[in-house]
Design a protein around this nucleic acid. Sequence first.
DNA 1: GAATAAGCTGACGCAGCAGTCAGTCAGCCG
DNA 2: CGGCTGACTGACTGCTGCGTCAGCTTATTC
Lengths: 206, 206
Amino acid sequence: MATTKGEIVEQFRCQAIREAAMRVVSRKGYDHVTVQDIADEAGIAKGTVYLYFRSREDVLEKTMSISFEDFHILIREAILRGNTFVERVEEVAKAHLGYFEEQQEFFRLYLAMAEPLGERRLRKHASYRTHIAQLVSMVEAAAASGEVRDEPPERIAIALASVIRDIGLQRMTEKNKRPLADDAAFVRDFICRGIAAPPATPEENL
Amino acid sequence: MATTKGEIVEQFRCQAIREAAMRVVSRKGYDHVTVQDIADEAGIAKGTVYLYFRSREDVLEKTMSISFEDFHILIREAILRGNTFVERVEEVAKAHLGYFEEQQEFFRLYLAMAEPLGERRLRKHASYRTHIAQLVSMVEAAAASGEVRDEPPERIAIALASVIRDIGLQRMTEKNKRPLADDAAFVRDFICRGIAAPPATPEENL
DNA sequence: GAATAAGCTGACGCAGCAGTCAGTCAGCCG
DNA sequence: CGGCTGACTGACTGCTGCGTCAGCTTATTC
């Protein structure tokens, strides 16, 4: 009884518009998408967009948030799968890169949000901050159990996201892709041999 | 004889406009700068801008290129200062972060160019590619002498730039800054303990 | 001081886009 | 069938920003 026929139609339309928006943002970038683009992509008139969303910004904001929800869940699960910090990093990298692979549109959306230009973005989109926060708490847990060196957790988290993002970006532009597992392992090694607490002082020659 | 009075004036004006453009790009971001903004910042009329540059894009392009020249020289010198790969990474990080510190406007410009959205930027601005190329050849040299693991040099170079950039970004938003040397050391450790060839198999527990 | 040249100006033309709203039309009800 | 409803449309308005150019101001020359 909660969902009338009208509400179902509304949901369907909203979703169609968001999906169109996602595709267009992928192609043209966040800043350069017009409402007309979105309408064309969805096969409706521009005015119709305004029946379901307050503004251009509203469409893009909601598109962002909803797209990120799946992603957040995926990363959360990846973190839970690992038992040690090293394992968690590998799982996160695998999930991250894998999702980028199958959702190239999302990846471009993610890039658009992560782009740090003027901090405008970083401040604006709560979804991206939530994503970083997930990583921060993972790092904090590892710091508490002595698995990582004593560095600001947020610094490590951002560096982690940064490396994964750029590896993902490179995978995207490569012709003959390396196996995903290899890249996840690369990230794991790259990150962990850098930030893991020294095992038992093997050498101290720096 | 090569430089008439007119040419000197022209050079002076061009420089003033570029400097104004740099400040404005810093504040508003590449995409959102208008020619009027630049003219206002330079204290001249909009039309005057078009006496010295063909278009808005021309102003921004030249601003980019010239700003990057100093930066390229700085990084080249940093690379030459180091004797080992580890030293070079630290020198590069120090130079990088130091330059970001004293040239915050340049840093924001750099962010605007590095933003990978849609590869539009990366393809467009040769300056950024040149910067990456510098790092690639540094990594290649290190790979040749067995100082780094056998991974695609460009991958490592981009990851390196990525980490430095994000550390720089974080420094920028911090209230009480850590000493620059500490952060350069952080980057050095973060990078090198990740990509340095294993010294003499201290442990093999992965 | 007048005449000429050079440099600069900002109002204007034009284009593109966000958001609006009067009008259209398909479907439904009596 | 004829009238009503509401979802949808797309032309329109207002605005912003690029690039132009007729004219103004300042420097230079005689």
